[in-house]
């Protein structure tokens, strides 16, 4: 398949990258996103210092950050795509792949592990028909592991969207996702 992939030479790639950046890329981000990003920029000494906020802003509008969005943000912040990619991929809550409407963050760190998060995860997976890292076919949920949500005293815990669920039991999972048909069923 690689036979057919046209790859432009360095110079051209550089040029076309730059040209695309200059003409098209700003149009990728919405007015609202740009305004919010600019507000963050005004608070920091370097444009690139607003990188994390910019990523969060775009993610809050779109649910995740696509390659195209990332290049547009990088251009707007006057940094290279690779530099911004380094930041975006460093944080596991910046999503570089599409996620469902709600993200389930299931803690698997020490306290929650002691309190049986493994069984909880099995239960969630069973209810929703998805494994860690997967999204339900109806696009409602994406299930992700997370290392400590800072509520260890209420372990095991998980977040569904913006809501924190404490002392979670299998029963609670059943109640929460009981109405969900599960994957493929």
């Amino acid at each position: 398949m690689s036979d057919l992939i046209p790859i432009v030479s360095v110079a051209e790639a550089a040029l076309s990258e730059e040209k695309a950046a200059l003409s098209g890329l700003n149009a990728v981000l919405s007015e609202a996103e740009l305004t919010a990003i600019d507000r963050e920029i005004s608070h920091v000494p370097y444009r690139s210092a607003a990188a994390i906020d910019a990523l969060k802003i775009v993610q809050s509008h779109r649910g995740w950050v696509s390659d195209e969005n990332l290049r547009a943000i990088a251009h707007h912040l006057e940094m290279s795509a690779a530099e911004l990619e380094g930041i975006a991929t460093f944080y596991n809550l910046i999503f570089r792949r599409p996620v469902g409407n709600k993200v389930i963050l299931l803690c698997n760190s020490i306290s929650c592990w002691i309190k049986g998060c493994d069984n909880l995860q099995k239960k969630v997976s069973e209810q929703l028909g998805v494994d860690l890292g997967q999204t339900t076919p109806d696009n409602r949920y994406t299930l992700l592991p997370v290392t400590c949500l800072g509520a260890c005293d209420k372990a095991p815990v998980m977040m569904v969207g913006d809501d924190l669920h404490e002392d979670v039991t299998e029963q609670a999972v059943q109640t929460l996702f009981g109405d969900h048909g599960g994957g493929g069923e």
Partner: peptide, 24 residues
Amino acid sequence: GTDLAALASRDHVYFGRHSDGVLQ
């Protein structure tokens, strides 16, 4: 150079470009 970076974190750390392409 600006097109090579440390990507991701923990034991996923990856040294590469934003996407495939000639190092500039």
